[in-house]
Design a protein around this nucleic acid. Structure first.
Lengths: 201, 201
DNA sequence: CGATTATTTTAATCTAGATTAAAATTTTTG
DNA sequence: CAAAAATTTTAATCTAGATTAAAATAATCG
């Protein structure tokens, strides 16, 4: 108790620490894997003791769950921003890739890779899966829109979605905070994934 | 003891069971995550008891390690076959994607996603990382070759490699054995990842 | 078939790491 | 500054699941 009664400053402090914790956890999970990361590992990054994490979270499962909620939000916001700003289907796709990657390698990161959804407890699992499916479905609709408006060549939107999402989801696996690499990803990914490899187009 | 002295038939039987075990383990790890998969889960798939696995493997770490060795082999063979058969850089890339995907969704599968390299013991980790780096480097050289022969537009080969590898690595995450989906992946991925989304090319 | 070897199971351990409760410390607030 | 609330630590538990040893079963071979 106390969390509820806290004033502005307290809330902020609490939220800030919790946010730091989630990013520390995401980093651990991405780098060392879920099983390879003990709560002690996560806590150490914050200069805390493992037990301290229980002040912010009920248990490890909830920690993972919250990481995934954050990851889902980042993806969702990126896609919606792209939809709001993009001119046609292809432009929305390129923007989405750009925004999502920017978030992952920028201040919002690290973002957790959703590799352990099955170890979430049923309610959490269903929630994350639902959000995930929704995201995929929306992205596929964007692809269809692009095909309709002629900016994207006819294709299997399900497979194309899987391919692009896969490339995005894998980013946190090899990106570890190098600023110059961050620039490269942001500069190259949108083009690679939307324009392909062929010359002269 | 025994493994060494075994005759042809024995060796075959042993190897067969071990192979089944590795595929069962890969399936578990991909679906339920490493930490979410107990040896009991893996053994159950084979209709065995957890303890039985220790006849084939020293411990869980070695089980993961062997899964990764297999995964690396599949990738390596696919790339080398593509190099042997491809005409130019782009053709090699497309073939590699095709062969690798075919293997992953076909009889060779499931292939483990290498998500838990850090939890391998140092020697194993180094070995897998080395193979992995080598694979990435070779792929980048293919991209360079393609740029040189004009079949691939100039690009950041590191980032392009990361993008394509990411899309491939993610396949086992969403593919769960559906035959018709398998066809689609094989049919679409090479084109999506090498030709991109743009129309008229 | 009997003996030898291969494979699996049963039944204990053993252990890292998650979890908890109570105490200590730090921060905020009036 | 003193009291109250917030945060962290210390010091135990508690537990799932990995691991092991010995026994049981199945397969193979001469």
């Amino acid at each position: 108790m106390g969390k509820r009664l806290a004033q502005q400053t307290e809330e902020t402090r609490f939220q800030l620490q919790k946010g730091r914790m989630l990013r520390a956890a995401a980093r651990c999970f991405n780098e060392k894997g879920y099983s390879g990361s003990s709560l002690r590992d996560v806590a150490n990054i914050l200069g805390l003791t493992d037990a301290a994490l229980y002040y912010y979270v009920r248990n490890k499962e909830e920690l993972v769950y919250l990481c995934y909620v954050r990851a889902a939000e980042v993806g969702r916001e990126s896609l919606h921003r792209a939809i709001a700003e993009g001119r046609d289907g292809l432009d929305i796709v390129a923007r989405y890739i750009r925004y999502h990657v920017e978030a992952m390698v920028g201040e919002r990161g690290p973002v957790a890779i959703m590799s352990e959804i099955p170890s979430l407890k049923p309610e959490h699992r269903e929630e994350i899966l639902a959000v995930s499916r929704e995201h995929g479905a929306l992205f596929e609709r964007i692809l269809e829109q692009g095909i309709a408006d002629g900016s994207i060549a006819p294709c299997d939107v399900r497979m194309t979605g899987n391919a692009i999402m896969g490339a995005l989801n894998w980013v946190p696996k090899w990106f570890h905070g190098d600023a110059s690499v961050a620039q490269q990803v942001v500069a190259e990914f949108p083009h690679i994934l939307s324009a392909g490899l062929r010359p002269d187009n």
